[in-house]
Write a protein that binds this DNA or RNA. Structure first.
Length: 421
RNA sequence: GGAGGUGUGGCAGAGCGGUUGAAUGCACUGGUCUUGAAAACCAGCGUUCCGAUACCUCGGGACCGUAGGUUCGAAUCCUACCACCUCCGCCA
């Protein structure tokens, strides 16, 4: 959410920001509703002031045992008028709020202008592509021969896109999650284990709703949703709270499965682990002071990168262009790992700054040293998502005989050094 | 699932339907006192919206779990919902 005052004062900036993100927006409609509301507000507040005065007069008269019928009769009318005006204002507020939750956040000035992924900018890369003296296999082939997952079983239970891990595959998935959690906990992130189902307004606060409703699994008559990321429950822990300045920044790490319908993306990648309806992710969330949020974004992406570095995977960091930015974010970096079997980059992390956009929707504020209150800034990043991580891992560490080496950092979790039949 | 209870400011805790944004205590902030600290004393201490502004503030509205209702007037009465607590039942 952007503040209405800001939209009033910068309508063209808001309109342009939405345009650069490829979002539809009618700022003029918002401004005209806002104008109408304020006119009526002025009117009704004057009447309410009169009513409050009259209330005291009536009270005074009654105390002196005097007759107050005249004022009471007069106030009857005024109260009716107030009631009508209040209703009219509420009737204007409804469509205004409806429009306001559709106003996207504005890209940061440093974000490259662009339309799609071709306009993203590579910031840096790490490592080199692994070299093989044989033709590297894809994760599907490796996984099948090593018995790591069984998509037939998964789709038998839940339809396509729901992977079922088996044997060492299940163990490897669990190892990755535990490794990542332990790593971030040692790096001063506090672990949370959140609910995987949330209410509608919890998703509105972080900005997934209303825009992405089609991509969400919902239950309970559409008022409960399976979370698409742990960002949602974790960011909402402080909803309607006022934190003190010295409590900030706060850093949390949380594991959750992520549920995404991926509506409209059928046709490509329906096989394998690359695009699925349920995957596991370790998520990082930060609550920070506004003045430091861009520094915090830089350290967040480094924290996420350190996972793929520890696993020894070749990756690159991309800065998203305006057209690729999500609804709620102002700036975002992706981490893409190299999958030699697929011969392509796979996105395993997105690290975003939302500035006060989510904080405003969730009403998360902090009290400044000088006593004033202000909205905090929120950030989050995957640290990182497993399904694709496992793809890159298997394909990177495969041997000619179809076995897969286990990276050092995972060996304590796996209690083995090699995946074999 | 059944029965009962409670929801007021950072916390604790008052509040006959009529100067109640809300007593009191604690906490917090500033000051007096003190070499310093504590104690004591004095003062201050919510959020939000609209408008004005000589940028210091000023005027007005709203907010006592949430949403409705009754009333000239609601923290106070009524209804529904939500959350928490206690007891019973069921249960991984």
């Amino acid at each position: 959410m952007l503040p209405i005052q800001f939209i009033r004062e910068n309508p063209e900036r808001v309109q342009e920001g939405a345009f650069n993100k490829g979002e539809k927006l009618d700022v003029q409609r918002i401004l005209s509703l806002d104008r109408d509301i304020r006119t009526k507000l002025h009117e009704v507040e004057e009447l309410k002031a009169r009513r409050n005065k009259a209330s005291q007069e009536i009270s005074g008269l009654k105390k002196q045992k005097l007759d107050a019928t005249d004022i009471i009769v007069e106030m009857k009318d005024i109260s009716a008028t107030i009631k009508n005006l209040d209703t009219e204002i509420a009737d204007l507020r409804k469509p205004l709020n409806e429009l306001m939750i559709w106003v996207p956040n504005i890209p940061h000035e440093s974000v490259p202008l662009g339309k799609d992924e071709n306009d993203n900018v590579e910031i840096r890369s790490w490592g080199t592509p692994p070299e093989f003296d044989f033709k590297p296999k894809g994760h599907l082939t490796l996984g099948k021969s090593l018995g790591l997952f069984n998509f037939e079983w998964g789709s038998k239970l839940s339809g396509t896109g729901f992977p079922l891990y088996t044997g060492n595959g299940a163990k490897l998935e669990r190892a990755l999650i535990n490794f990542m959690l332990d790593y971030h906990i040692n790096n001063n992130y506090e672990e949370l284990y959140p609910p995987f189902v949330t209410l509608r307004h919890t998703l509105e606060a972080t900005g997934q709703l209303p825009k992405l409703e089609e991509d969400m699994y919902h239950i309970d008559d559409g008022e409960m949703f399976l979370i698409p990321t742990a960002e949602v429950p974790v960011t909402n822990i402080y909803r309607d709270d006022i934190l003190s300045e010295e409590e900030l920044p706060q850093k949390y790490v949380a594991f959750s499965p992520c549920f995404r319908r991926e509506a409209g993306s059928y046709g490509k990648e329906t096989r394998g682990l690359i695009r699925v309806h349920q995957f596991n992710k370790v998520e990082l969330v930060k609550f920070v002071l506004p003045e430091s949020s861009y520094d915090e974004l830089e350290s967040l992406i480094l924290d996420a990168e350190s996972i793929v570095q520890a696993l020894g995977l070749h990756y690159r960091v991309m800065e998203l262009c305006t057209g690729e930015l999500s609804f709620a974010s102002t700036k975002c970096y992706d981490i893409e790992v190299w999958a030699p079997g697929e011969n392509r980059w796979l996105e395993v992390s997105s690290c975003s700054n939302f500035e006060a956009f989510q904080a405003r929707r969730a009403n998360i504020r902090y009290r400044k040293e000088n006593g004033g209150v202000n909205f905090i800034h929120t950030l989050n990043g995957s640290g990182v998502a497993t399904a694709r991580l496992m793809v890159a891992l298997l394909e990177t560490y495969q041997n000619n005989d179809g076995t897969v080496n286990i990276p050092d950092v995972l060996q304590p979790y796996m209690q083995m050094t090699l995946l074999r039949n």
